[in-house]
Design a protein around this nucleic acid. Structure first.
Lengths: 221, 221
DNA sequence: CCGCACCGTCGCAGAAGTGTCCCAATTCGT
DNA sequence: ACGAATTGGGACACTTCTGCGACGGTGCGG
């Protein structure tokens, strides 16, 4: 995704990137960037620092707050203060305009390569003995590894995201099933039952996925 | 490790780095760099391109041939050709003299951080027993070698690129077929079926190209 | 001790996801 | 032009997932 207010530069970048086989998203300002970035989940961000509205640095920070996507700053001046600030805000690299296309492409390739390497072990979601593996859609409990169905996966991800806090049935219905109105049968209980059958050694005596009577469910380390 | 023939710059770097708590090795030329690097196995290399004797680029290549240690090029001129060549020789980053110490330090930190994350090789076209041969467009599975059609080749290349991670049908449609919008029939399943017929001993019980129900396909080593 | 709310357990049927095979359209070499 | 290889689409069967309801057990307050 290219975040850049100057249309001419955007086009130059688009053509250069598409020539290399990349799919390109364009954002002319920070707001667009945040919305588009959230919806489309791009593989790399090229961000101009000088943007109308939200400053590029804030875009970097906002994105970095929720994502590990590689961010390359494209800035008009070789201002080393901006660069340092940018890198510390979470950017991974930078180039200064006027940039040499070939160099930019090399840097993009490098970032993508690195992101692929990092992705595997770095997204590891875990809570105590329970480890979720996004790369294979499996749970590992102790030494045992079990494949999960899509719903089971989402449920467990939600619970792990809450660490050891209780998550109510309503919250689960909303975030896993996408329901709007609460109280929709016993879908959650069911899924928990099935999940326990997979990940608990003794499903009748769960040690990882606990019930908190009257409130919901939670994980325990 | 600082590889730099100018003693003054070496000292500047040494002091700056030691101030940050790093331990610094110095090499005044390429030969020293290779020997010292081999014996001491440093965490980061700072390499000047203009060296007496062996050229810095060749140092980069030699080191990169056997190691993944982060290499940062320190070059006297902002010559973009050198930079591109350097990055393609295997360097991870560069700064140009005169450099701002704070920026250099930020880049070193970034490289160390990223080196800790990296785990696997990436341009290797094999995964477990499955090995792709670009020059003949064939797969080798164990001892058996089978020719592939163009689409089969691309599909397998995509899967191998993902190592053992799951790849969704949408991703495959995008990256192998070049589709833009998801959900286009069952082309993927078909290709997988044909690929399994070629590379699996028992296509009904695949051991290499696995289905992850609800998510996509993945390879297994 | 009793009743109630809450939860575990299980069976069932429709829905969704895949494997398998066949066919037509296209491409390419002969 | 003809045939082989490739490839996308579709039909059908089969497996797995998933939502729902029913039943019974358990904890809690009166």
């Amino acid at each position: 995704m290219v975040v850049e207010d100057d249309e001419e530069i955007r086009l130059v970048l688009r053509y250069a990137l598409e020539d290399e086989g990349y799919r390109v998203l364009e954002a002319a300002n920070g707001e667009q960037a945040l919305v588009l970035g959230h919806d489309e989940d791009p593989d790399v961000l090229l961000v101009d620092l000088r943007l109308p509205g939200i400053h590029g640095l804030d875009v970097v920070r906002s994105v970095r707050a929720t994502s590990k996507v590689p961010i390359i700053i494209v800035t008009a001046q070789a201002d080393s203060h901006d660069v340092v600030t940018g890198l510390e805000a979470g950017a991974d690299d930078y180039v200064t305009k006027p940039f040499i296309t070939k160099e930019l492409l090399a840097r993009i390739r490098a970032q993508i390569r690195r992101a692929n390497d990092v992705a595997s072990d770095h997204d590891l979601l875990e809570c105590g003995e329970v480890r979720l593996r996004p790369e294979t859609a499996e749970v590992q409990v102790g030494q045992r590894v079990v494949p999960l169905s899509p719903t089971e996966y989402k449920l467990l991800a939600e619970l792990i995201g809450a660490r050891e806090r209780v998550v109510s049935r309503d919250d689960l219905l909303r975030n896993v099933w996408g329901y709007r109105n609460p109280g929709d049968g016993r879908v959650v209980d069911n899924l928990v039952y099935r999940l326990r059958a997979k990940m608990e050694a003794d499903p009748a005596e769960p040690v990882h996925l606990l019930t908190v009577r009257g409130f919901g469910y939670r994980l325990k380390a």
